[in-house]
């Protein structure tokens, strides 16, 4: 770390820390969806990354549609597009659960293989429809600039937006899970499926909506992803290993754990990347997580349920 003055080092730390925050937001949204699906239902969704890609392409399509037909709406479309991304990913997730997942609840390892197959098919569909090259959406102007609190610190606005979005969604999901009727039913189904069914909860419907919601949140993650990077058919699959590690590291069923682990993984990667190479930063981070998981397999936060 020689050659940097203390002031430089502070600025680097703040900026890398902030670029880590953007990554944290996308990772958190991805992991949130996965944590709902994996933590609540025990289903491994290897196609989760592709649901994120669905969200990202939805933003791309809505942006080009707005540009062609309603150029005057350009400053506002992004907010609506996020909603559309959620709805489309939700719908695809709903259909997927109906056609595929519900037959495999008793065989978690097989779900893993089947959803991997699904992800291959979805990637190829993206490639056939949108082409193999990266595309990026036209972002509204208010997302583009940056905020300069001091001379050497430069914080991009899109990062701030993504962070706020992630925290909002996170809070909303927490409310939904712990304060709503639906959340109560979901938690009841997770804890004891048979008893939940016996007291009149339609567990099959709950499963389907839970799965679809997880996928929908991945769609929002994809929408946020477009503000910080461009989209290609395989963008989602690049995140899937990290996302799974976030969920496992955080402790499968714990919301706080997921947030903590997404934060620490994203920050560690972002800061290490600056001092090592990007590849080595990732290797060191992932390796550390795996070693920690070997010592403490239940993850950061343990769900206090007797299994």
């Amino acid at each position: 770390m020689g050659g940097y003055s203390l002031n430089d080092l502070m600025s680097i730390l703040v900026m890398q820390g902030f670029s880590g925050l953007s990554m944290f937001s996308v990772l958190l949204l991805m992991a949130l969806g996965l944590a709902i699906i994996f933590g609540q239902m025990g289903v491994i969704n290897m196609a989760h990354g592709e649901f994120m890609t669905i969200g990202a392409y939805t933003i791309f399509i809505t942006s080009s549609l707005t540009n062609t037909y309603f150029p005057s709406l350009k400053p506002f479309y992004f907010i609506f597009a996020i909603g559309i991304a959620f709805v489309i990913a939700f719908a695809v997730g709903y259909v997927t659960e109906f056609l595929l997942i519900r037959h495999l609840y008793k065989r978690p390892l097989d779900t893993l293989l089947a959803t991997w197959g699904l992800s291959l098919i979805m990637q190829q569909i993206f490639r056939s429809v949108f082409g193999g090259r990266e595309v990026s959406a036209d972002l509204p102007d208010w997302l583009m600039g940056s905020w300069k609190p001091t001379e050497s610190i430069d914080i991009p606005l899109n990062g701030v937006f993504v962070l706020v979005m992630a925290l909002l969604v996170c809070g909303f999901v927490a409310l939904l899970l712990f304060k709503s009727q639906w959340g109560l039913k979901v938690r009841a189904t997770t804890q004891n499926r048979i008893m939940a069914g016996a007291v009149g909860i339609n567990t099959k419907l709950i499963d389907r909506i839970t799965f679809a919601t997880g996928c929908g949140i991945a769609g929002i993650a994809g929408a946020c992803f477009t503000t910080i990077a461009s989209t290609s058919p395989t963008s989602g699959s690049l995140y899937i290993v990290d996302t799974f590690l976030v969920v496992v590291f955080g402790g499968a069923a714990s919301l706080i754990g997921t947030i903590t682990s997404a934060f620490s993984i994203a920050q560690a990667q972002s800061i290490l990347t600056f001092f090592l190479t990007s590849a080595m930063g990732k290797v060191v981070t992932l390796l550390t997580i795996i070693v920690i998981l070997m010592i403490k397999p239940e993850g950061l936060m343990k769900n206090k349920v007797r299994r």
Binding site: L113, A114, G117
Partner: peptide, 12 residues
């Protein structure tokens, strides 16, 4: 890739 994906799903 379609075929490969279908194989994963089909075999399961």
């Amino acid at each position: 890739l379609f075929f490969m994906g279908a194989m994963f799903i089909g075999v399961v």
